[in-house]
């Protein structure tokens, strides 16, 4: 408020000086004093009015809300289920219990900071990461028609099954890329499929909601970003699925039998690996006859399995599509 008054005064003085300078050649000191006095009076009056108005409409707010908001990432991604970070902070303070609240972006570190501010205990959630469950690249999944509408997955999905024979697969217009506030998803120009940058991904879930084919899942994050998942959502019968895409899951259930941890379920001709139960033993991967189970960021296998299973250039860093 002081700053405002000062600003008004300065501005007024300058304005009056300028006006004086512009109109008359001689400098009129009386006029100058009047102008300054009048503008100062207006300034003081405004300040007084503002002060009383501010008092009148003052709303008490828990100072802890500001403190909580301060430690939040400020991404306003909505991944917590609240409309932005401020709303999440309000919810935390109001509830006073963090067991059901989680900021997916900040993760456990931020949640424990919030817990300190509020003097309660935070629930630790295992960090998650977005995974795109389609591997139907341009070569694996031939086009059956040409889509010529607006470049939006939502629009194409509402219109029809898509420009390949697989109605479950990725459409590749990048609705997930647009939805991601952290630049963690990009479309690979070679495959036409989205790829998640595991380190940038905060598991806010925006892409999960944006994908009309429900291809993206938040899966448990494993050390070194290792993951094993069924990169397919095709629940057509095996023959139909295979015809549409070389790497489709045909629901043969071989992986189901191979899994020692009961992490795999097969429903509607489609296998699913539960990331909370999966111990990343990699046994299912070699069983899969259509290569629809992907293992990522693993070191190369020690023992060569069956056909062209191992490629020599596999390193810990390369994305190892198991062949």
């Amino acid at each position: 408020m002081k700053r405002l008054t000062a600003l008004i005064l300065t501005f007024g003085t300058c304005a009056s000086l300028y006006a004086q300078d512009g109109d008359a050649k001689s400098f009129n000191i009386d006029g100058f004093i009047y102008t300054v006095a009048a503008l100062s009076a207006i300034g003081v009056l405004c300040a007084v009015i503002l002060y009383f108005v501010a008092q009148k409409f003052k709303v008490y707010e828990d100072p802890r809300i500001d403190a909580v908001e301060g430690v939040l990432p400020g991404a306003n991604c909505g991944g917590c289920g609240c409309a932005g970070c401020r709303a999440f902070a309000e919810t935390c303070v109001k509830k006073g219990d963090l067991s059901t609240l989680q900021c997916p972006v900040g993760g456990n570190a931020v949640m424990s900071q919030i817990a300190d501010i509020l003097g309660v205990k935070a629930a630790t959630a295992s960090p998650r990461v977005a995974v795109v469950r389609c591997n139907g690249s341009c070569t694996a999944r031939p086009r059956t028609n040409r889509y010529d509408g607006a470049a939006s997955c939502a629009i194409e999905a509402a219109l029809y099954g898509g420009d390949t024979a697989c109605q479950y697969g990725c459409l590749g217009h990048g609705d997930c890329v647009t939805a991601c506030l952290f630049n963690a998803i990009s479309i690979n120009p070679d495959t036409g499929l989205p790829e998640v940058d595991d380190d940038a991904c905060t598991a806010c879930g925006a892409c999960v909601k944006a994908c009309p084919k429900r291809l993206i899942e938040l899966r448990k994050k494993a050390p070194k970003n290792r993951k094993i998942y069924v990169a397919c959502r095709n629940s057509d019968k095996g023959a139909t699925a295979r015809k549409a895409c070389n790497v489709a899951c045909i629901g043969c259930s071989k992986c189901l039998k191979a899994c020692p941890h009961e992490a795999i379920t097969v429903e509607n001709f489609l296998a699913y690996i539960d990331s909370d139960k999966c111990k990343l033993c990699r046994k299912c991967v070699t069983e899969c006859s259509t290569n629809s189970i992907r293992e990522l960021n693993f070191p190369p296998r020690k023992v060569a399995v069956s056909d062209a299973a191992t490629t020599p250039e596999k390193t810990a860093e390369t994305v190892t599509d198991t062949i």
Binding site: N145, R146, Y147, D148, G149, A150, I155
Partner: peptide, 10 residues
């Protein structure tokens, strides 16, 4: 496969 049918919304 150049003669794929075109699909677009009306």
């Amino acid at each position: 496969m150049s003669n794929l049918l075109t699909i677009s919304p009306s």
